[in-house]
Design a protein around this nucleic acid. Structure first.
Length: 546
RNA sequence: GCGCCCGUAGCUCAGCUGGAUAGAGCAACGGACUUCUAAUCCGUAGGUCGCACGUUCGAAUCGUGCCGGGCGCGCCA
């Protein structure tokens, strides 16, 4: 529909204006208020400069030249806006299209890309916390949205299993193990203090008995490290699966070292002159790319930094042929954005091959009080706890309600409440209502035919709902282009609201008027389809009964 | 000190890349259950869009400068 409106505008403007119309960057949008038409354009304002005429006069000229078929009404308002009211038949046609195939809801992009979304990527040194949960919900939903518009998406988790943090993990587990036999065994100063470390130590004791006591400490620590890593990774994997997040690939940092990718990358950068040596350390010239200082790749003690393997990792991503690389990071890592973008350019790629999404902090509110969380003290609220507390659907929906640029207060009580306050149920209920309508039809033995008698849909409420659904494709598209899943959430709440209002105010099943029932059930079915589709983009289930 | 994010109704937040009288949910107040599920609906009230300049037909949106909050600034990750 929108494309047709655009075409009609172009034709009309072509008759009164010689210049390049497309360069005007005019909009054709669904106005906030339905009194302002089904679509509206601001083109008269933009032409005012070129034609040196008042916008209203230009709008009048356009109106005189425009082909009126397709519209039931066209008018000028607001000092130069042109408002278009579409013929109802077009809306009915749209309903038929989405009942025929829900794929018609979303227009695919012309140039599908290979997109990699790397997210969560928490170090395997402890369980996932609620901050990771936000990144998980965001990354996965974004992946679903990008797939919906036609891109090929690869979901990846990067495992930092090669650095100092892993040694610390091994030492911590080893110490807890030793403490089982000797309470006074020293625990490392900066070790991981969480309870899960003791749990892992006990598991190892069960598996190996006291045999680790006799082993050389270095060997025992390595064993603790590997066992601990595997155990924690398995926990992470299963928590994410419970959360509805499945990765295509788990990429270990170790693989980069094992295959010599890190050294290879350093060599590459050296040859292109992006590296220099100073104070017996190797530095990357990130200032050449807008960073405030150069960054160390190899420390003077010969050890490589995480940044070195991060560059190697991104080089590998580029070599795998992704057109677009999306990194989802916690906002506390924003200081790394410039250097990573610099690295991408140093590797010979375009800056916009890489998009880094920074997810802001999460805090929990329960009974009106903020729950504090501190990773250092080993006390944090785990994602697992949250899922057990509110469920996967509510957790995902809540995480996705907010733009990632804003800090997020997760209201536990609201997410748990089974009342109309809870937006998750509000949206899910809309879908359940549609399902129950069909169940009711069977009960009543009514022989309803969908996509028939659609011209019985003439109520303002009905047209509003159809228009809203028509906008869905645009919303998904915007969500994909701007990497903003929260737009889907807002859309669903609005659509559910319209449907609840409609349902309450009008009988959908009218026993003595089969044709009206045909029409209204078609509309309801469409709503069910759109809600389910929308929820699937969030990874939230569309339940049939509540 | 420098950098990033945020500042919109009492609270939590949207605002489609500059459009029409700034919206939603919750909380508050008043109403609707003999109904296709009241997990719902209807209504009332609530605003200096942090502040000040600037850009233009037009600014919550763009620019500059302040103010306030969060985060980050290591040869740590």
């Amino acid at each position: 529909m929108k494309e047709v409106v655009r075409k009609k505008i172009l034709e009309a403007v072509g008759k009164i204006y010689d210049g390049e119309v497309n360069s005007l960057n005019y909009t054709v949008e669904i106005p906030k208020k339905s009194e302002n038409g089904d679509f509206a354009t601001n083109i008269a304002f933009l032409l005012a400069k070129h034609l040196k005429k008042a916008p209203v006069r230009i709008a009048e000229d356009i109106l005189e030249n425009i082909d009126r078929s397709f519209f039931r009404h066209v008018e000028i308002a607001g000092g130069g806006f042109i408002n278009f009211f579409i013929a109802y038949e077009e809306f009915y046609g749209f309903l038929e299209k989405i009942l025929d195939d829900e794929a018609n809801l979303v227009e695919k992009v012309n140039n599908p890309e290979n997109v990699q979304v790397e997210f969560v990527s928490a170090n395997p040194t402890g369980p996932l916390h609620i901050g990771h949960g936000r990144g998980a919900a965001f990354g996965d939903s974004l992946a679903r949205i990008l797939e919906a518009v036609g891109h090929n998406v690869h979901r990846e988790y990067y495992i930092n299993d090669a650095g100092n943090q892993m040694n610390k993990l091994g030492e911590s587990i080893y110490a807890r193990y030793m403490q089982i036999y000797d309470k006074n065994f020293a625990f490392p100063e900066d070790g991981y203090k969480g309870e899960y470390i003791t749990k892992i130590a006990l598991i190892l004791q069960k598996k190996y008995g006291d045999t680790l006591l006799k082993k050389d400490e270095a060997i025992a620590v390595t064993l603790c490290k590997d066992e601990g890593k595997n155990y924690i990774l398995e926990e992470i994997r299963s928590d994410l699966a419970d959360f509805g997040v499945i990765f295509d690939e788990w990429f270990p940092e170790k693989r980069l070292y094992d295959k010599g990718k890190v050294e290879e990358t350093l060599q590459y950068l050296k040859e292109s002159g992006k590296i220099y040596e100073l104070d017996s350390a190797l530095w990357f010239k990130s200032t050449e790319f807008g960073d405030d200082k150069d960054r160390v790749l190899k420390k003077s003690d010969g050890e490589l930094t995480y940044f070195a393997s991060d560059i190697a990792y991104h080089k590998d991503k580029l070599e795998r042929g992704f057109d677009k690389i999306i990194d989802v990071w916690g906002a506390d890592h924003h200081g790394y954005v410039e250097r990573m973008k610099g690295a991408i350019k140093a590797l010979g790629a375009q800056e916009n091959n890489l998009y880094i999404a920074l997810v802001q902090m999460v805090s929990l509110v329960k009974s009106g009080e903020k729950m504090s969380m501190s990773t250092r003290a080993g006390e944090f609220v785990t994602l697992k706890w949250l899922i057990e507390e509110v469920g996967t659907d509510a957790a995902r929906f809540f995480y996705l309600m907010r733009d990632i640029n804003s800090q997020f207060e997760f209201d536990i009580d609201l997410a748990k409440s089974k009342t109309s306050d809870n937006p998750v149920y509000y949206v899910q209920y809309a879908h359940a209502r549609v399902c129950s309508l069909f169940a009711k039809l069977e009960e009543k033995n009514m022989d309803v035919k969908l996509c028939k008698d659609l011209d019985r849909l003439v109520l303002k409420d009905e047209i509003e709902i159809i228009k809203k659904m028509y906008d869905f494709g645009n919303v998904v598209n915007q969500a994909a282009v701007n990497y903003q899943p929260h737009r889907i959430v807002y859309f669903l709440r609005e659509l559910a609201g319209l449907f609840h209002t409609y349902y309450y105010n009008h009988a959908i099943i009218v026993e003595d008027d089969l044709s009206l029932t045909n029409a209204r059930m078609t509309l309801s079915q469409a709503v069910g389809i759109v809600v389910r589709f929308g929820l699937s983009l969030l990874g939230v289930k569309a339940v049939k009964r509540m």
